[in-house]
Design a protein around this nucleic acid. Sequence first.
RNA 1: GGGCGCUUAGCUCAGCUGGUGAGAGCAGCUGGCUUACAACCAGCAGGUCGGGGGUUCGAGUCCCUCAGCGCCCA
Length: 843
Amino acid sequence: MPDRPSLEGLETKWDRVWAEQGTYRFDRSKSRSDIFSVDTPPPTVSGSLHLGTVFGYVQFDSVARFWRMRGKEVFFPVGWDDNGLPTIRRVQNLFGVRCDPSLPYEAGLAIEPDPSADRPLSRRNFVEVCDRLTAEDEKVFEQVFRHVGLSVAWEQTYTTISRRSQRVSQRAFLRNLARDEAYLSEAPTMWDVDMQTAVAQAEMEDRPTSGAYHKLRFHRRDGNDLEIDTTRPELLAACVAVVVHPDDERWKTLVGSEVTTPLFEVAVPVVAHPLADPNKGTGVAMICTFGDSTDVVWWRELGLPMRSIVQRDGRLQGEVPDWFETDAARSAWASLAGKPTKAARRAIAELLAASGEMAGDPRPIEHEVRYYERGERPLEIVTSRQWYIRNGSRDEDRRRALLEAGTELRWHPEFMRIRYEHWVGGLNGDWLVSRQQYFGIPFPVWYPLDADGVVRHDRPITPEEDSLPVDPQSEAPPGFDESQRGQPGGFVGDPDVMDTWATSSLTPMIAGNWEDDPDLFERVFPMDLRPQGPEIIRTWLFSTLLRSQLEHGVLPWSNASINGWVLDPDRKKMSKSKGNVITPEALITEHGADGVRYWSCSAALGTDTAADPAQMRVGRRLAIKILNASKFVLGRAMPGGEVSEPIDRGMLARLATVVGEATASFESYQYQQALERTESFFWSFCDDYLELVKSRAYGGEAPGAASTASARSALALALSVQLRLFAPFLPFVTEEVWSWWQDGSIHRAPWPDPVELDVRATDDPAVLDAVAGVLAAVRRTKTAEKRSLRAPVARLVVSGPEETLTALRAAQGDLLEAGNVAELVLVEGEPAVEVALAAEDEA
RNA sequence: GGGCGCUUAGCUCAGCUGGUGAGAGCAGCUGGCUUACAACCAGCAGGUCGGGGGUUCGAGUCCCUCAGCGCCCA
C-alpha cells in the first residue's frame, strides 16, 4: 500500500495486467447456462470515436462486469464496422481517390493522402486503400476502448468487411435465396444521385427544403386550360397522367378525358385516385415517372406507362424522349437535355413563361423532401434491378410474427418497444439490400448469358457454401471458366454489394462464428443482451431480429438495452455537422477513465445526457476518496475477528440492504441505481461511521481489546464489499485497492452477497442513525460557533425516546471520542440536542 | 399531422407500484490544517415539483388539457 495513493498511472498499469493475465478472456469451455453473451454494437470506423459510443459501451460494460462477478462467463466481443459508404467516403475525401472499375489493378501502388488529387483507382486498389485506412483507425479505437477500461474479450474481435463476415453474409443470403426469402426485382427505387446507389427505407429521412410551386397550364379538349401546381416542373416530360380525387365535384366530369401537356403537347389521361389531395393546389396533380413515392403508387395501381427521363446521375437524359410527337416538343428538349434536375427546373420555368403556359411566377415554399441520411441532394426515383429480403411488409403473417417476437424481447427501458412496433407496423416495402458500390460484400451470384448474349436474371447461379466468400467479379461460377465471362453462353457476375445492414444484421452470427465453429455458436447463441442506441432500432435491431427469425426461428437475444444520446453541454445533440463533438480521448485523459465511466453510469438507460465535465470530476473525486478511505481501513485492518459492537453490526446490516438493492438493480439493467445506492452508502460510511469508530479502530491504549477488533473487522469487511459493488463502475481504482490486500483480480471476485455480512435479527442500522444524528448536531454547533471540529464539548445533553437513548448508550464511547465530548447526559423526552462547548481558552 | 420521452433548487439530475414536514451532487456563501483524504472536511442557504383542471382522506407520483423542449415516424 503506497504512502500517498494516487490515480496516476493506474490506467496504463491495469490495462497491461489485465491483458497479460487474460482477465477478460472468454473461457469457451463453459456451457450456455453459465455464459452471458453480449451482441455489442460495432462502431463505424472513422477518424475519431464518438463520445456517445464510449458512453453507451461503458454503460453495458458495467452490466457485463456485474454478470462476470456474478459467476457468469461473459462473451463480450467487439466488432469494427468498416464496411460500406462511410469508409468509401472517408477514403475518397482523405486520399483524393475515386473508384473506376474499368481500370486495371496496379500492384504496389503507393497512395498518399491528398484530398485534392481526384485520382482514379481500380476497384482492387481502391479496396486496398480502404483496408489500410480502416486498419489504422481500428487501432486507435481499440486504444480508446482499453483506456476507458472496457472488459472486452479482445481475442474475439471481428470486422464487418473481414473474410469471416463475408462468409457469414453470403451464406445467410444464399439460405435466404434458397428459401425464397430473398428475391431479385426490377422496380422503381429510391436513388442517391451522388453516391450512385439505391437506398433502403430505413436509411432515408425527410428534410425541410426550399422549393417553389409552379402553376402549369395543361390544355383541355374544349380549349380551356387545366391548371396544375407542381414543385417539379422539370419532370413535365415524364408526365403520364393527371390525377384528381374521385369525390372532387370540380373535376368529376373530366375523369376519363385526355389533356395535353404544356410545351411538349403530349396527350395524357385524367384519372381518379383517393391519394389525390383536393386541398393541395388546384386539386389536380400531375403523375410523373417518378417525382415522389406517391407517383410510384399511382403508376402501379393505375397501370400507367413508364416515361423515365431522369438518369442515375441526376441529370435529364440527353436524347429526345421517343414519346414526343411534335417538332416544337423536340426543340424545347434541347434546352433541358443533360441538365441536372435543379438547373432543368429553372430552364423549363423560363420556357413555360415564354410560351405563356405558366400562370404567374413560381411561389417559393418550404417543404419536406426525402434524402438519403448521409446524402446531400434529394433522392430521385429510378427503375433498377435490386435484391430484396422479405420483411413482413407484404405478408401479414410474417409481420405479425415479427411483432410477436418484439413482445417476447425484454426491452430496457420498456417504452423503447413501441419504436420497434411502429417501425414494423409501418413497413411499406421489402428490405432493399443491394447497393451499387465498390467497397462492400458482393452478392455471391452469377447470371448465365443465353446464346444471344442476353443476361438471364431469372436463373441465378450460386456457389457451394464451402467456397465462400466469393467475388463474382473476379471468380467464375461453378462449371464455367473466366474466359466465358460476358460471352454468349457464358456468364456475368452480379455487380452489386450488400447494404451494410445486411451484414450488421448478422452480428450475433459473425461474433459467434456461425457454421464455422458450431461448438462456440451453440454456447453463445441466442445471446443474452443486445445493447445499442435508439436511432438504430429500425435498422440494426429490426434487421438482426428478422435475419434470426428467418435463419433460426428464434429471437437473437433475450434482452435489448437502449442507451440515450449524449448531448453537448448546451443540451443539443452532438453531431459532426454542428462542430460540437467532444472527443472521448481528451475527456478520459483529463478526468480519468473512472471519472468518465462514473458520468456514463450515472445516466439511466434511454436517458439523454449532457456531456458534463463537472460530473466526471465528481467521479474522479469519488475514486480518490476510495483510495484514501481504503488506506485508512487497511492501515489497521483485521479481517476475521468478531464484530461485536452494536454500531458496527448496524453498519453491516445497512450495507447488506445496499447489496440487495444494488444486485436487484443490476439484474433489471438499472446499473445507475446500483451506483447511486453504493455511492450514497459509501459517503455516509466515510463521513459518519468512519469518523465515529476512528479512535476505537486506532486501539489507543488497548489495541487488543474486543471493541477494537470489532471495528477493524467491520471496516475490512465493509471495504471489501463496497469495493466489489464499485468494481463494475470504477474498475481501475477498485482493482488498485484490491491488489493491496487480496489475490487475483477484483473483476473475477465474487459479487457480494448479504450472507457474507452475517446479519442477525438483532442488528439494527438505527443505532448508527441515532449516533450520526447527534454527531451532526455537535458539528453544527461547532461550525456555527466558528470553532474547530476538534473543539471540546463540555456537556452534551440529548433527550429523546427510550429507543434513541438505548442506541446512544450502545455507542456512547464512539460518540464521546468523535465529538470530543467530556460529559454526555441522556434524558427521556421530546427529541432535542443541547451542545455546550468548552470555553475557547480551555481548548 | 401521429407517436414516444422530457419539463423537480442557479446548473445536472434522483424521487420505483400515490402516504412521515420534497432529496443528491455541482456552483454559491460561512467556517475549519481534524494523525485516510486541503484534489480535503464541516455547516448554511436555495424549490408555489412547467400552467390549468380532475380523481382521492391524501398527488412531484394517477387522469384530462394547454404550453415548451428533444427524438422518431408520416
